[in-house]
């Protein structure tokens, strides 16, 4: 399970509610800079939450931009919410749900994708899900299956939970040297898959978006 370490609902960006009220006010004065400040402040949290409950990056990015355009459109009709961040987060959740149900027509919707209480997925699952390309997804899944649970645990702690090697050592009773080597060996494998993924992403950027969108 993705733990609460970087959970979106509690953690927020650099600004407090007071600044948010100011940004909101700017936006209602038809100054889009206010909206953009909120966007930059919340983006990472939204993105992170999005990929952890939903399918791929593309959908999450689209949902985030959608809600900000919606808010901008309705800026004169909307009263300033009491808690702007919480309000936007609810908007975002709803949007994800809409996108999900729309894109899933015809296919079966599994329980985990149902809102309003979406379940955050295990780290490994999210790692695979965030990839857009199905070939990369497949390779990544195979590769992750080859890693030991220790390797996966250390990777998650170091790069997802942002713990230092020393902190991991305290938590797991392994020596820093062992942890370092374990992660290193895992990274050599992961790197191969990701090199392909980067290559594919670059290739897609060069092709006319018309062809694949």
């Amino acid at each position: 399970m993705l733990n609460a370490h970087r959970s979106t609902e509690s953690s927020t960006g650099r600004y407090g509610e007071k600044e948010y009220a100011g940004f909101w006010y700017e936006m209602q004065q038809d100054n889009e800079q206010g909206l953009y400040k909120i966007y930059h402040d919340l983006y990472d949290n939204f993105y992170h939450y999005g990929v952890s409950v939903v399918l791929d990056k593309g959908m999450v990015k689209e949902a985030i931009n959608d809600i900000f355009v919606d808010i901008w459109r309705k800026r004169h009709q909307l009263d300033m919410p009491e808690n702007i961040q919480a309000y936007l987060f609810i908007c975002f959740k709803r949007k994800l749900y809409k996108l999900l149900t729309k894109n899933q027509k015809g296919t079966v919707l599994t329980d985990s994708q149902l809102f309003p209480e979406p379940e955050e997925q295990p780290y490994e699952t999210v790692l695979i899900r965030q990839e857009t390309d199905s070939l990369v997804k497949e390779k990544l899944e195979k590769m992750l299956a080859l890693l030991t649970s220790r390797q996966k645990e250390f990777i998650r702690m170091r790069f997802y939970e942002d713990l230092s090697i020393e902190e991991i050592a305290v938590k797991t009773a392994a020596t820093p040297r062992t942890i370092y080597n374990t992660i290193h060996n895992a990274l050599v494998r992961i790197r191969e898959v990701y090199t392909d993924a980067t290559f594919i992403a670059l290739l897609l950027l060069l092709i006319d978006p018309e062809n694949f969108s």
Partner: peptide, 26 residues
């Protein structure tokens, strides 16, 4: 690139592209 993927983060470049789209839409 690997660091951002493993951290389930979006890269600043990707974000910049998204922000460009938002500005155009606004």
């Amino acid at each position: 690139d690997m660091l951002f993927r493993l951290g389930l983060r979006i890269t600043p470049e990707e974000k910049e592209v998204e922000f460009g789209k938002l500005k155009a839409a606004i």
